[in-house]
Nucleic acid binder design. Structure first.
Length: 229
DNA sequence: GCGACAG
DNA sequence: ATCTTGTCGC
């Protein structure tokens, strides 16, 4: 897919925080008018213990059958450290390269991390959606900020995530008796649509199939690249 | 100052 | 994220 550079990546953590405050103003909190979701993609990265290489991948699924229809991957040297709140500056360089190599445009892209459920309302899914120009959702396995009340045990049970008095996302039970996932809108997305799509892309496991396919892809690519079995 | 802290 | 052994449950 095409990709217009938004900014440079050679930044200090301090500069990255300032950039987040700038870029958040450009987020669109609404899905595109008449959005029809036929293809949903998942993005993920993988790395080895003491290695500078990161492997990123994107897998596009048919939203009706959950079957993969396209995939892409890339490897890039990591530069930015992991800093809570600045994850996108570590992951997006390699995901950008994978996005460039992707030949089928998804209607929505689901990231493995937060959207607006972030200290500055600009998590990985916000940054990625803005950079790629695609509606995006954050679906994380744990919380970065905020709290939520109890939720029912059945699939589809939800509880609002509150941070600084604002509803920034929802804890969503995707299967009976499993821990919830944490869903928040990224770019060109709202909360009800994000929750509905995460549930639609989830079948027999806790995480959406998009995330699971992307996770498997990047781990396979990493093992091949390092000559493992 | 102390604890929390996506991946 | 990755590293690891054991352990719980269908």
């Amino acid at each position: 897919m095409e990709l217009e550079p938004l900014h440079q990546w050679d930044l200090t953590p301090k500069q990255a925080v300032a950039l987040q405050r700038e870029l958040r103003e450009r987020l669109d909190p609404r899905p595109p008018a008449g959005l029809t979701v036929e293809r949903v993609a998942g993005a993920d990265i993988s790395m080895s213990r003491g290695d500078v290489w990161a492997y990123g991948g994107i897998v596009v699924l048919d939203a009706g059958t959950l079957a993969p229809v396209a995939r892409s991957s890339a490897a890039v040297r990591l530069t930015f450290p992991y800093v809570p709140g600045l994850l996108s500056f570590r992951e997006l360089p390699v995901l950008s390269e994978a996005w460039t190599r992707l030949e089928v445009r998804p209607d929505v892209l689901i990231f493995d991390g937060q959207g607006i459920a972030h200290p500055r309302r600009f998590g990985l899914a916000c940054h990625g959606g803005l950079l790629f120009g695609v509606p995006s959702i954050g679906c994380a396995k744990s919380l970065l900020v905020g709290k939520h009340g109890p939720l029912g045990e059945e699939r589809g049970s939800v509880a609002d995530i509150i941070h600084d008095g604002e509803v920034v996302g929802r804890a969503v039970r995707t299967r009976l008796g499993v821990l919830p996932v944490y869903v928040s809108p990224g770019h060109m997305m709202d909360l009800p649509t994000a929750v509905e799509l995460v549930l639609r892309m989830t079948s027999r496991y806790r995480e959406p199939e998009t995330t699971r396919h992307a996770h498997r892809l990047v781990n396979d690519v990493r093992r091949s690249a390092r000559g493992e079995s």
